[in-house]
Write a protein that binds this DNA or RNA. Structure first.
Lengths: 114, 114
DNA sequence: GCGCCATATCACTCCTCGCTGATATGTTGT
DNA sequence: ACAACATATCAGCGAGGAGTGATATGGCGC
């Protein structure tokens, strides 16, 4: 019976965790950050983030599948953009939280950095 | 000069990623979820999450170092609680975002589940 | 059609993190 | 002081994911 509850709970928790993992990577954050300002084609993202092209492409696929970004073909470019304003909200909330806990987060080296 | 900008940017990005990673684990989310309702001692968290005691303890340490939870000694118990309401806000935002992108997130098996 | 550019995919390696089991520290009663 | 409970720590294992390099696909202009 704890089973039932926990199964339901863990389904939710798994989803949350999965979504958080979507944001839990510097490369993806860099990409999302770049896209927050304006829609960009892949090679533009590559330029601005200084990540390798396959790397960016892989992450974009992941972000696209997750529905965090959307893409439009424009000639031979493919323009990516943030799919939903809630994403920007979430990123802002994280920054707000960081204002409070930044020190601790920096200090926490249980798990190494990046 | 792109250096300067990128160094600053990446410092921020690293912090964000690190914070997100704090939330990007089912065990930690389960713990935080349990604590959202009420402060709890370790063994209570263990009961409710059905995680092993060392496991909970490890995650609590991490969450504590990161400043996401706080602890008060109470007799021979140690009561943990959410350190800042912004954390609850963030969790709610994620759920709100999930309402929109849940389907995609589930579907995205670039990286396997859990 | 061909070469070029933009993007996507694949195979592989390395590293990190999460979990477990055993053990240590600490606190409260008796 | 000792026993019992609550919590923390540590070593080691195993797995997942991020990055790279090479390569494939696809649209565009000549």
């Amino acid at each position: 019976m704890a089973q039932l509850v926990d199964d339901r709970k863990s389904a939710t928790i798994e989803r949350r965790a999965k979504l958080f993992r979507g944001f839990a990577d510097p490369s993806r954050l860099a990409i999302l950050g770049a896209l927050c300002n304006e829609p960009l084609a892949v090679h533009e993202i590559v330029e601005r983030t200084e990540l390798s092209q396959p790397n960016v492409s892989n992450h974009l696929r992941c972000l696209l599948d997750c529905g965090l970004v959307a893409s439009d073909r424009e000639g031979r470019f493919i323009r990516y953009r943030i799919s939903n304003p809630r994403i920007t909200v979430l990123l802002n909330d994280v920054d707000a939280l960081l204002d409070v806990v930044a020190v601790g987060v920096e200090a926490c080296d249980n798990y190494r950095e990046a």
